[in-house]
Simulated scan of single mutants.
Amino acid sequence: MAYITKRGNSYSVRYTYEDEHGKNCDKWESFPTKEEATNRKKQIEHELAVGTFLIPSSVTVAEFLMDWLPKQCSKHKWAPKTYESNLSTIQNLIVPYIGSMEMQKLKPYHMENLYTTLSKTPCGSYIEGKKQELTEKQKLRFLSGTTIHEVHRLLGTAFQYAVEWGILVKSPVPVDSPKKSTQERTIWTVEEMRAALDSMEDPILHLAVHLTLVG
């Protein structure tokens, strides 16, 4: 059962729930209007009745991911490079932007904002989670769509575990993933091929490159 109490200019919904250890806990949630408080009261009572109530948690994205990562590494016996790659993605591409946000407050639009931000972020902005000073030239080289796609993939996998662990009801990661980058191959002109061959003094290297270009 939940109750509504007027406190100053706001309305509070008070209710009791059982935590993961079976202990009764009291919780207060404040709302600016009585209508919002009433709607939340009905939602809580319904979720408690049907067993879908989500235990309140203030765990942040950074805390969750840094807890999830070593567990997955151990469970799936990742190679060191796989662990290091995922750790780098978390430290440099996720935590600096949404790491301080609470998991239960994340919405799909937060994910979309993250992808948009990353698409405008220069490569190497963070290394081991530390902000880097970039040159003007480095600032012009932005993260690729493939890199952002990897962020999406990692968050999609991690947040599904958050659902299984009872931290989230539903993953906020969008179904549609960012598009991977496609880089068109450049073909040398006849002049460029001749210039390259003319610059090679080693006859064996000259022959090898010549055959490669012909092929």
Rank of each mutant, 00 (worst) to 15 (best):
E128H: 12
E18Q: 15
A158F: 01
T60Y: 06
H210C: 05
P56I: 07
G124F: 09
V173F: 02
I204K: 13
H206I: 01
K180F: 07
Q160W: 02
V173Y: 02
W78T: 03
N92R: 04
K131T: 05
A208L: 15
S10H: 11
C73F: 05
A49N: 13
T82W: 00
P203C: 03
L211V: 09
S85A: 11
S12H: 12
P203S: 07
L211D: 08
M200K: 05
R141I: 11
G124T: 10
S100G: 02
T212S: 14
S177R: 14
K179G: 12
L197C: 04
Y11H: 13
P32V: 06
N39C: 12
T135P: 03
P80S: 03
C73R: 05
V95Q: 00
I94L: 06
W28I: 04
F142E: 04
Y97E: 03
E136T: 08
Q160S: 04
I187N: 06
L213F: 10
H46S: 15
I4K: 05
Y11K: 03
T182G: 09
K27Q: 14
V163W: 04
K120A: 14
M66E: 07
A49M: 11
S12W: 10
P122H: 07
V95I: 13
W28C: 11
T121N: 06
M101V: 01
S171R: 03
W28T: 07
M1A: 07
E184V: 14
R153N: 06
I167V: 06
S181Y: 04
M193L: 09
F142R: 08
H210L: 13
K131N: 00
S30I: 01
N86D: 03
E164L: 01
V59A: 05
S125D: 01
E128M: 10
A162F: 01
A62R: 09
P178Q: 05
P96E: 00
